[in-house]
């Protein structure tokens, strides 16, 4: 069985800054992986390399058996496999919520509009926001916008979902609704890679926790072992600084 994500020997530089150092990690189908670590540890860079929003400078990245490189057709195929949810939602402000979900399908898959609308309705329903479909993103709360962003990504029917700090830009009272949506998704069997500071979420749904620091993967462990008996000194130090775990 091919791995959903297979990364080996990954290196990434920003000028002289070594952002990712020899990163190896893999995700199986239907596995949920949470990446955590202090800011600047390279976790966002790593997840952004997975659909080539950042180019990597060394190593291999395979998504669903397709290797990421300069081949544009492969890149297209990879982006079809992997949906992404951003910290700042990045909804299209000039389109209604419904259009945000419909247009990308029409523009990148040439899906017939009627099918696209039908699918958009289904996923907006699933994230419990169908009642806001005719509004513009600017008229919604942050939590609602992020749920629309999740629905938008799901409309492309990806096999993997990448979440780049999906709750970091939210007011505290809105974090729950987004996490609930993600838990629901995880329970549906979606392969997920989540960069987050929400350790409760990691405990609840993750199969594996990846701890990164200074561009390196320090520790990969199932959540109960990671939180209760971290192996590495650096993980222990990180966990001791968290208020709740």
């Amino acid at each position: 069985m091919t791995l959903a994500i297979d990364v080996s020997g990954l290196n990434k530089y920003y000028g002289n800054y070594h952002a990712l150092r020899d990163v190896d990690f893999s995700v199986e189908e239907r596995q949920r992986v949470v990446i955590c670590g202090p800011s600047g540890s390279g976790k966002s860079t790593l997840i952004r390399c997975l659909n080539r929003l950042e180019r990597h400078d060394g190593g291999r990245i395979c998504i669903g058996g397709i290797e990421l490189g300069d081949n544009l057709r492969d890149l297209d195929a990879v982006r079809r496999e992997a949906g992404m949810v951003f910290q700042h939602f990045n909804l299209f402000p000039h389109m209604t919520v419904l259009e945000n979900c419909v247009m990308p399908q029409v523009l990148s898959r040439k899906t017939a509009r009627r099918d696209a609308v039908e699918r958009a309705h289904a996923y907006l329903e699933r994230v419990h926001i169908l009642d806001q479909a005719t509004k513009y993103p600017g008229q919604l709360s942050g939590g609602q916008q992020q749920r629309v962003a999740i629905a938008r990504a799901l409309c492309m029917q990806p096999r993997i979902m990448l979440f780049d700090e999906p709750t970091s830009a939210l007011d505290p009272e809105m974090i729950r609704e987004v996490l609930d949506t993600m838990v629901d998704l995880a329970e549906g069997g979606m392969t997920m890679v989540v960069v987050t500071h929400e350790m409760g979420f990691a405990r609840q749904v993750a199969d594996l926790v990846v701890y990164m620091e200074a561009g390196e993967i320090v520790e990969i462990a199932p959540p109960d072992r990671f939180f209760d008996a971290p192996q590495d000194e650096r993980s222990r130090r990180f966990l001791s600084k968290l208020v709740t775990a």
Binding site: R79, R80, F86, H88, N90, P104, L107, S108, R109, A153
Partner: peptide
């Protein structure tokens, strides 16, 4: 973030 989101959704350059 707007063009990044479009890229991640696989929307081709000129359509973006």
């Amino acid at each position: 973030g707007q063009t990044e989101a479009a890229q991640a959704l696989g929307i081709p350059y000129w359509r973006t």
